[in-house]
Amino acid sequence: MEQNELADRYLAVWNEPDATKRRASVEELWTADGLHIVQPTEDVLKEASGLGFTVTFEAQGHEELATRIRLAYEEFVAGGGCTFKRVGTAMRLRDMVKIDWALVDADGTASAAGTGVLLLDDTGRIRRDYQFIA
């Protein structure tokens, strides 16, 4: 699959209103043990550090991924009236795809942005999904 097509399918799952279609897309895009890892915001990192903790946010496997994506959909898309969109062209290097994205409201204003780095298996499914929120 071409990198922009993968990027668009990846972002579409975060915008999908139908729970059954969303779950099917999770199973199509990620491996059964796929891992989604989000770098926390600076505020969260600072708070955790002050308490002597390190922090990573992770969801692994289809069930946890489906829950993570459902909750993001409910908060940002259904509840916030925003859409996840690709920014620019996705880039591919062997088994890695880099996606820049934005969370855009109805008037086109980005309320959040980030970069995703997807590591793919031999069949083109996501085995690791690293997210960096700007």
Score class of each variant (00 low, 15 high):
93 L>I: 07
123 T>W: 04
69 I>A: 02
25 S>R: 15
60 Q>W: 05
29 L>A: 07
129 D>G: 07
36 H>E: 03
91 M>H: 09
77 V>P: 13
8 D>S: 15
89 T>P: 07
53 F>D: 00
110 A>K: 07
134 A>S: 09
122 D>Q: 05
97 V>I: 08
39 Q>K: 13
45 L>P: 08
5 E>H: 08
4 N>Y: 01
105 D>S: 08
114 G>K: 04
52 G>S: 08
22 R>H: 11
36 H>N: 11
9 R>H: 15
103 L>M: 07
17 P>K: 11
88 G>Q: 10
74 E>L: 15
18 D>H: 11
34 G>W: 08
22 R>P: 02
27 E>R: 15
21 K>H: 03
7 A>S: 13
73 Y>V: 02
121 D>Q: 08
31 T>Q: 14
41 T>Q: 12
57 F>E: 14
125 R>F: 07
32 A>Q: 08
77 V>H: 05
41 T>D: 12
31 T>E: 14
86 R>Y: 02
14 W>H: 09
89 T>Y: 03
62 H>V: 08
13 V>N: 00
45 L>I: 01
6 L>M: 13
94 R>K: 06
15 N>Y: 10
18 D>Y: 04
61 G>Q: 05
126 I>S: 08
78 A>I: 10
2 E>A: 14
108 G>K: 06
120 L>A: 06
7 A>G: 12
73 Y>W: 09
77 V>G: 12
118 L>M: 11
79 G>W: 07
116 G>C: 01
11 L>W: 00
84 F>P: 01
66 A>D: 11
41 T>M: 05
127 R>F: 02
68 R>H: 14
43 D>C: 00
67 T>A: 13
104 V>I: 13
70 R>P: 00
111 S>W: 11
41 T>L: 14
65 L>Y: 13
122 D>L: 09
26 V>L: 10
94 R>D: 15
85 K>H: 02
52 G>Y: 06
72 A>N: 11
4 N>S: 13
28 E>Q: 15
124 G>W: 13
6 L>C: 03
131 Q>K: 00
58 E>L: 13
103 L>A: 03
59 A>V: 03
117 V>M: 15
45 L>S: 09
59 A>Q: 13
116 G>K: 10
89 T>D: 14
4 N>Q: 11
11 L>I: 04
39 Q>Y: 02
16 E>R: 04
84 F>M: 00
88 G>Y: 09
120 L>V: 13
132 F>Q: 07
122 D>K: 09
116 G>L: 05
82 C>N: 15
89 T>F: 05
93 L>S: 04
74 E>P: 05
30 W>M: 04
65 L>F: 11
68 R>S: 13
57 F>Q: 14
42 E>L: 10
71 L>W: 12
90 A>M: 07
107 D>L: 06
9 R>F: 09
10 Y>G: 03
66 A>E: 06
114 G>P: 07
130 Y>R: 10
5 E>L: 14
72 A>H: 02
128 R>F: 14
